[in-house]
Amino acid sequence: MKVFDGKKIYELWVKAWNEDVSVLDEITASDCRVHQARTDGKTSDELKGLEALKGIIMDGCSFFNDVKMTIEVGPIVDKSYVAARWKFTGSYKGGMQGAKAEIGEKMSFNGMDILFVEDGLIKDYWVSSDGVSLMEQLGILS
């Protein structure tokens, strides 16, 4: 049984966004479930495991250069749960369907994560972010 260090796990989570998703290899359960509002019709039962978690990060970063995720509140640790509020910033690099933003335009939006950790591994991941603000900045919503 791995020792639970919620703050360390969240530090590695942020590192996955800012540097290298491979750090998730050591902190993610093979059956980890992703709970996220999606536009592709997939459900939490379909979004499972290390590759799903890595995919969310890689997809989220794919339209931006200079990605930086910073912690604004937390991490807050309560038993097997870790929560934090974050800020995502980056420069739009193009390619998002329907986006009217100029390439190089700076974007930022906020969100919150909750991780359920068991035996030192992320078993569940919930995310809630201000996607409306991001879509407005991209010119997708007016």
Rank of each mutant, 00 (worst) to 15 (best):
D78Q: 13
Q97F: 12
S142M: 09
Q97L: 11
A99C: 09
W86I: 06
I114H: 08
W126S: 03
E102C: 03
G74F: 00
E11H: 10
V73Y: 11
E105K: 14
Q36F: 09
K123M: 06
I103C: 01
K15R: 15
S44Q: 06
M1K: 11
L47A: 07
K79G: 05
V132K: 13
F63L: 15
M69N: 03
F109V: 13
G104A: 06
Q97S: 13
G90C: 00
K79A: 11
K8M: 10
S80A: 13
L141S: 08
I56G: 04
S108T: 09
G60K: 03
L121M: 09
D66F: 04
G94I: 10
K100M: 13
S142C: 10
F109G: 13
G6I: 07
K15Q: 15
M135T: 03
R85H: 14
K106R: 09
L53R: 00
V77E: 14
F4Q: 12
K79S: 07
S129Y: 15
E19W: 10
E19Q: 14
E46Q: 15
S142R: 14
A37Y: 03
F88R: 05
S22W: 01
M107T: 03
A16F: 01
I140R: 00
K7S: 04
G111H: 00
V73T: 12
E102N: 08
G95R: 10
K100N: 10
M96S: 11
D25I: 01
G111P: 00
D40N: 15
M107P: 04
Y125N: 06
S91C: 11
Y125A: 08
V3S: 10
F63Q: 03
L53P: 00
G131M: 06
I56K: 00
G111Y: 01
L12G: 07
L115I: 07
V117F: 11
G98A: 08
E19V: 13
L24K: 05
D66V: 06
V77G: 04
E19H: 12
A84S: 02
M69T: 07
L24E: 09
